[in-house]
Design a binder for these strands. Structure first.
Lengths: 419, 419
DNA sequence: TATAGTTTTTAAATTTATTTATTTACTTTA
DNA sequence: TAAAGTAAATAAATAAATTTAAAAACTATA
C-alpha cells in the first residue's frame, strides 16, 4: 500500500514576489493574488501613490483585502507606507506607494555612432546615465561583443547591487520581434534570439525593442502626456521612425513591423530610397533628404555658415545642419522648412487615419523646434480634414534623446513586473 | 429613538439579468457576479458553446463557481444545456451555450437611396431581413420621420415580441459620436442626440455607428476572419470608408473620426474633392472617380456596353458601371483597374503603417471581385515594403452589403450585453 | 472644550469561493 | 464482461473574501 505524502514537497518558506512571479502553473487563489499584486503595482507605477480607499475602487476589492494585499507587498519590500495625507474631514488616510530603490532597470539606446545607457528605479526616476558613449554599430560579432562589454562596464560602475537589477531594455533600429527577442536587421548570426545571447553574457534578463517605439513609450510616460490615449510619436533622424500608442498601449501590428511611415509612397520622384523603392516619404522629408538637399544647394553655389567655414559639401552631416539652423543659418532654415512641409503632408495623412489626440515630434531634427514644427503645422492644416486636425495637438518632444533610455527602462519595468 | 429598518426597502424577488445589468451603484460580490456573467456571455457569444472546464480556464474560476454561474444564467433564460459531447476518455462533459431566441437585436443600414433592416438572435444568426427598401436619405425632419416609421413597421412585422428586442443599431455615413449618440452629418436638428430622438419614437434603445466601421465589425465577426486581430476593412462605394480593428476591437480615435482614408493627400491633381481639398485619394480611386472617368471616356468617344444601349453619359451611375464590368465590358474593366491601381497605392501605405494581418475589400465596388482585387494587389506589391506586405492577406468581402446589418446587430449585442 | 459628524482602519461575523474528496459516467484494456 | 483508468460533476470541508459593526482619528461646530 503506498501512502501518498502530498504536501511534503511544498515549500515551507514563503516565496518572494519575484519567485512567485516566475513560478509556473499557479492556479486558484495563488494565481489571483499574483494578478492582484501586479494590478496594484501597475496602479502605483502608472498613476502614483494611493490610499487603501483608492485601491478598493481601482481593484474592486474590500478594504480588508486591500490591507492584506498591501501588507504582503510591504513584506516583499516593494511598497511602503508614505504616512498620512490630508482628508476632507474625518480620519486621515495613509498613503502607500512603491519603494523606489527596491528594484532597478537598465535602458540601452543603440545609435549608429554612440550608445546611451541609463538606470531607472522602480518609480520613473532616472538614477544615472552614460550618454554619447562612443560605439560603432556594425553588423558583426565584434560590435556585439563590444556592446556587451559596455553594458557590463556600466553595471559594475553602478552604485546598485546587480541582483536588484531586474531587466535590461535595448533599443535597436530596424526589424525586431519584441516577443521572441529576435533582431533581423542587426546581429542575426545565431539560431538563438539576440536577447538570449546578450542575456547569457550579462546575466540579467534582456528585452529588445524597436528604437522609435521605445522612444514613443518614453514620451508617452513623460509629463507632457496627460490623459491622451491615442498618440503618435515621430522619430525624425536620418530616417523617419514612428511609434504608435493606441488606447495607451504600444501598437505592434502582426509581426511588429508597424509604423513604417518613412516608406509610404507619397512622392512622384526618381530618388531611390534605402528600402529600394522610389517615391518614399524618406526621400523628401528625412534627415538623409535634408543632407542631400543641403549638399546639392552648396554645389549649386548657395552660401551657408558651413560653407563659409570651408567645410566640403561631402563632409557635412545632419548634426552640422541642425546646428547651423539653430545658429540662424538661412539655408539650413529654408531647407528644414522644406522638409517640414513634406513631412507635414505625411502627418496630415496620419491624422486623417488615426484621429489622434497628440502628435509628438522627436529625434534629432526635432531639436530645431519651431523651424520644423511650424512648416509641419501649416502643411497639416493644408492637407488634413480640419475637423479631424482640430482634434490634434502637435508637440516637440521634451525628453529629446533621453526618450530612448527612459522608454527602454519603463518598457522593461512593465514586462518584468506588470504583464 | 429612531429605529432603523434597513432591509425593508430591498426587493425580495430576485432580479432578472437585464435588471441587474442596468442597476447602478452595485458593488462587492453582486458587482463581481454581474461582470462574471458578462464575461461568460461574451465567451459564448464570441467563441461559442463551452463546457464547465472550458469556462473554468477562461474565467479562472473553480468548477463549483462556474456551475452556479451557469445555473444562474440558465435561470435567467440566456443559457442552456446543449447535452453531452465527446470526451477523450472519461465522463462526457455537458456543453453549455446561448439560447438563441432569448434576445434579439435589430440592425439598420441607411444608404443614400435605400434601407436594409435585419434582425439577429442572441447568437450570430440573421433571422429576418428587409433589404433594398426604398428610402431617400435627406437631411430633414421628414426623412427622419420616415426612417422611424420604417423601423417601427419592420418591428411590428417581426415574429418576435417587442420586449425581447434589446437594442437597435443604426449605421449612418459621416461623422458620428458613438458614445454620445450624436450625428453631425445628418439629422442634427435638436439639442438631444439623434439616438435618443429615435429611441423615443421606437421605444427600444438605439446605438449609432459609422457605416464603414459597422461593416468592418460585421466582417470581423464573420467566418472569413479567424485568428486575425489587426484587420483593415475598406468600404469601396461612391466614397472610400475605412474601419480599423486593432487587437480585435474597433478603433475610434479621439472623437471617432478615425479612418478618413478617402481624404488623404496622395495625388497632385486639381480635382476638388467633396471635402473641399485637392489631391484626395477619393478624387482618383473612388466610385465617384470611376463614374467621372467613365463619363469622360464616353464623351471622348470611347465605346461601352452602356453607350451602345443609348445611355447618356450623365445618366450612368456607379451600379451601371459595376454591372457592365461583371458583363465583360472592356471600358468598365479598364477603368476599374485604374481605380484599383490608385487605391492600391493608398492601401500599400496603410500596410506599411499598420502591418495588418488582413485587409478586406467591401462595398459595392468589391462586387467586381478580381477586376478590382488584382490591380490593388499588384500596386500593393509595388508600393509597400515586401517584408510587411508579405504578412498581409487581401480578401474580398463575403458578406457584401449584408456586412452592414450584421455588424450593426453584433455591435448592439456587445453594447447591451457585454460592455 | 465638548459633541456631533466624517472617514479610515481594524475586528468579528458572515458569506462566498476554493479545495479536497467522493460519486458518477464513460472508455479502454485485459 | 469485468476491471482499471480517466474525466466531469457534485458534496463536504476548508479557506478566503466580503459585510457588518466597532473603534480610532480627525474636523467642524455649538
Amino acid at each position: 500500500m503506498d501512502h501518498k505524502i502530498r504536501k511534503s514537497n511544498q515549500p515551507v518558506m514563503s516565496k518572494t514576489f519575484f519567485e512567485e512571479l516566475n513560478s509556473e502553473n499557479v492556479t486558484g487563489v495563488a494565481y489571483k493574488n499574483i494578478n492582484l499584486k501586479k494590478a496594484a503595482l501597475a496602479y502605483f507605477a502608472n498613476i502614483g501613490n494611493a490610499t487603501i480607499a483608492d485601491m478598493c475602487k481601482e481593484l474592486n476589492l474590500s478594504a480588508p483585502k486591500v490591507t492584506t494585499l498591501l501588507n504582503d507587498l510591504i513584506q516583499d519590500g516593494l511598497v511602503k507606507d508614505y504616512g498620512k495625507v490630508e482628508s476632507t474631514g474625518g480620519r486621515k488616510p495613509n498613503l502607500y506607494g512603491l519603494v523606489p530603490d527596491s528594484a532597478f532597470f537598465i535602458g540601452v539606446d543603440i545609435k549608429q555612432n554612440h550608445l546611451n545607457l541609463g538606470l531607472s528605479d522602480l518609480q520613473k526616476n532616472l538614477i544615472s546615465t552614460v550618454e554619447n558613449l562612443p560605439y560603432k554599430l556594425d553588423n558583426n560579432k565584434e560590435s556585439l561583443e563590444q556592446l556587451c562589454q559596455h553594458i557590463n562596464q556600466f553595471i559594475t560602475d553602478l552604485p546598485v547591487p546587480r541582483e536588484k537589477i531586474l531587466g535590461i531594455g535595448i533599443n535597436l533600429s530596424g526589424r525586431i520581434n519584441y516577443a521572441t527577442g529576435y533582431s533581423y536587421s542587426f546581429f542575426h548570426f545565431d539560431e538563438e534570439p539576440l536577447s538570449k545571447i546578450i542575456e547569457s553574457k550579462v546575466g540579467i534578463r534582456v528585452f529588445l525593442e524597436n528604437d522609435s517605439r521605445s522612444m514613443a513609450y518614453g514620451e508617452f510616460c513623460s509629463d507632457s502626456v496627460h490623459g491622451e490615449k491615442n498618440v503618435l510619436f515621430l522619430n525624425l533622424d536620418h530616417g523617419i521612425g514612428m511609434g504608435v500608442l493606441i488606447d495607451g498601449k504600444l501598437y505592434y501590428g502582426k509581426s511588429g513591423y508597424s509604423g513604417e511611415f518613412g516608406h509610404i509612397p507619397l512622392f512622384d520622384n526618381e530618388i531611390i530610397c534605402h528600402c529600394g523603392k522610389k517615391g518614399c516619404l524618406e526621400t523628401e522629408a528625412s534627415g538623409w533628404a535634408l543632407v542631400r538637399m543641403f549638399r546639392q544647394k552648396l554645389d549649386e553655389g548657395s552660401s551657408s555658415l558651413l560653407s563659409r567655414r570651408n567645410m566640403q559639401p561631402s563632409e557635412i552631416g545632419l548634426q552640422d545642419i541642425i546646428h547651423a539652423a539653430n545658429h540662424d543659418d538661412v539655408l539650413a532654415i529654408e531647407l528644414i522648412a522644406k522638409i517640414g512641409e513634406n513631412l507635414g503632408r505625411g502627418i496630415a495623412l496620419l491624422i486623417n487615419i488615426f484621429n489622434p489626440e497628440l502628435v509628438i515630434l522627436g529625434g534629432s531634427l526635432a531639436a530645431t523646434e519651431d523651424y520644423i514644427r511650424l512648416p509641419i503645422k501649416s502643411a497639416i492644416n493644408k492637407y488634413s480634414l480640419s475637423l479631424v486636425n482640430n482634434d490634434t495637438r502637435l508637440k516637440i518632444s521634451r525628453l529629446g534623446e533621453r526618450a530612448g533610455i527612459i522608454g527602454a527602462c519603463l518598457l522593461v519595468r512593465n514586462k518584468v513586473l506588470i504583464s
